[in-house]
Write a protein that binds this DNA or RNA. Structure first.
Lengths: 142, 142
DNA sequence: ATTACTGCAAATCTTTTGCAATAAG
DNA sequence: CTTATTGCAAAAGATTTGCAGTAAT
């Protein structure tokens, strides 16, 4: 239900960041705004090149990374062979089904943990981000 | 201070699992028992091939995966370009310093989280594992 | 004697890069 | 006009695999 990344938003933000609106970029933006989250470069490339056949994979790779730098996407390493990109910029976490690979977004109202200070080696480290990664069997694979 | 993987333990367990004790495997076992945790295949290969020069990288790749299958190691995907392997089989979590890349082990006494049920899409999924991944700046990089 | 294991080299797969041509602002 | 962007093809890096020979049990 989250209207997370419509085309206009992407176009507007990219313009702010000084990215030029090439046709290739427009196609990629549109694919991303329609696609489900957690896409790989190749998934985007497959769809995009159907609409814009002379598109090069390198262009998609470069665009995705530029979008990350510009804050339009998030890198999402879920452990597969390819990097994934998340169009959902809200703070959230993930559940991965070990059977079918499906990824579900998780939103936490609250999280609290108590570290075993004797055995943990944090010293005076400063924690900047917390990522919860749940694995298991999804509702359809149970 | 955790005497986590001495050579005898590895040899014993591998014998149980029916792995043959080749010289190559022995060298790899010894490296792993001396090494710090979170090693890459290449790190093991570099050290091992110093002692056993005709060792092939493919052998190390295969051995590490066999050890995972046999439950002697754990795959540890920390997002770098290479897979890491964890010799620490206890349940624990990780903190990664975004400055220097150092990995610290974290042991939790307790963790509790409250999911936003409306926005999270878990259905009747069954959760099998929980992985906490903290990032930040370690004590030395602060 | 069986069967697992090894080294090698080639293959695969993902991602990056150099470069000259092109197009957006 | 200036600078970012593109396509291509090559390169890079990690990992896997086929195969024939070798060694552990």
């Amino acid at each position: 239900m989250t209207e997370n990344n419509n085309l206009e938003k992407l176009v507007g933000l990219s313009k702010e960041k000084g990215l030029k609106l090439t046709p290739q970029r427009m196609v990629i933006f549109r694919i991303l705004s329609e696609c489900n989250q957690h896409v790989t470069v190749d998934q985007v490339y497959q769809k995009a090149s159907a609409e814009y056949p002379m598109l090069s994979p390198a262009t998609v790779y470069r665009n995705m990374e530029q979008m990350v730098d510009a804050g339009l996407l998030t890198r999402l390493d879920l452990g597969g062979s390819s990097m994934r990109y998340d169009t959902n910029l809200e703070e959230h976490h993930h559940f991965v089904c070990t059977e079918c690979g499906k990824v579900s977004d998780l939103y936490l109202e609250d999280i609290q943990y108590k570290m075993d200070a004797n055995r943990s080696q944090l010293g005076k480290a400063k924690i900047n981000s917390l990522d919860l990664h749940l694995q298991g069997t999804c509702g359809e694979c149970v």
